[in-house]
Design a protein around this nucleic acid. Structure first.
Lengths: 153, 153
DNA sequence: TCTGAAAGCTATTCCTA
DNA sequence: TAGGAATAGCTTTCAGA
């Protein structure tokens, strides 16, 4: 499932470019080029190469969940009975409001993050999860940190 | 801590624009405009307005943690003894490899996600967390889903 | 891998509706 | 709030090192 291709290792310029485009993915090639002391052509070819090698997997806007009308944010941990990988995929397909799903070691095999407009909406989604395994639901008071993976040491 | 300003509600065009820029934040205004059937000037003013109102909070590249050399990804839950908000902030300041931190209801007051290059690296970070509260560490086998907040119903 | 130059696009500003 | 027109700036391609 995880891609473990071995490709050319990243040099310092690649890592600086990654940090620049993590900071602002709408920056022009000219601006990104400034950050790595290269011209636009060279910057473009490095950026494209990082995308093609799967180092950069996409460029996305960060959006406030509250502004979209999601007043609730929950973390659900699920202990699964049996090998129900397909059923997890089904639930994810049914509920785009499950924005994150991790398969982990330990007691709770899956961690989910869910956005909901109200308690009834949350219950609709968690009850679908509860058909696959036994769940524990915590509400999120605050996203204290959510930041990019460090690219330079 | 959470911004609860009431602003103009989002219309359907705003929501389509949000989805377009979630899909590809490096798209030109011309491309984004196509998705919402507007010209570049109108697209630009809507995009800027969404940014200024805090609906769109940034534009960022998604990067493969494995490609950056992080072979381990862990979820840590922490039960805190006392009101140690500042000490959590300190730890976050010391360890950029803690990429996510949620304050939640329930037994474990905080959830962290940590990227590490190896077990020694992970231990260095978790042992710093363990000075604040009692922790449970799970390793992540797979990020099954990680997707944008749905903007349209 | 990078630079530089030419051509074609894209963004921005401002005015009009 | 959207469209259109003009200028400035940016991106792309390609040749050369």
């Amino acid at each position: 499932m995880t891609d473990t291709r071995t490709t050319t290792p990243l040099d310092e310029t690649d890592r600086l470019l990654i940090e620049a485009v993590q900071r602002d993915s709408r920056a022009s090639l000219a601006e990104l080029g400034k950050a790595i002391h290269l011209g636009t052509s060279a910057t473009r070819s490095r950026l494209r190469s990082l995308e093609e090698r799967g180092v950069i997997t996409g460029h996305t806007a960060r959006v406030s969940a509250a502004a979209l009308g999601y007043t609730l944010h929950a973390v659900v941990r699920m202990k699964v009975h049996g090998a129900l990988y397909d059923r997890v995929a089904d639930v994810l397909g049914r509920h785009p409001q499950i924005v994150r799903c991790l398969r982990v070691t330990g007691e709770s095999c899956y961690h989910f993050e869910i956005l909901a407009t109200d308690m009834a909406d949350l219950e609709r989604i968690t009850s679908d999860l509860a058909r696959i395994g036994s769940i524990t639901t915590d509400l999120v008071y605050e996203v204290v940190a959510d930041r990019p993976s460090p690219a330079t040491r």
